[in-house]
Amino acid sequence: MSEERLSIIKVRDILMVTMPADPDDATVSALQERVLLAMERSTARGVVLDVSAVDSLDSFFARMIAETTRMVGLMGGRTVLTGIRPSVAITLTQLGLTLGKTRTALSVDRAFEILRDGSQQVQKP
């Protein structure tokens, strides 16, 4: 029933994934499968997950992000999360959540830079 959809586009060898503002559970769950399928099809080297439209991120969503990062890692890719709003950062921290080993960047540009410098830092899934 969600009219707002997850968007996945390939920019060179990186998948740009944009979450809608207030995704329902089905959209959040679909994130994993769709991102992994896109990884396989496009032989991308990594994923930029943009959550700048998201104005609240609960523990379910956070777990999905952390898991997606691990799964992408198993396939040989890296995930960089970008666009966490200040209010979301405060809330997530007070909620007691972490995003596992998910790498973060302040902007999409920076996220692409991190993924391009692939050899600079190796991320453990």
Partner: peptide
């Protein structure tokens, strides 16, 4: 905005 986010979450 931060309190709104806290309450929603």
């Amino acid at each position: 905005i931060t309190d709104v986010t806290r309450i929603i979450t």
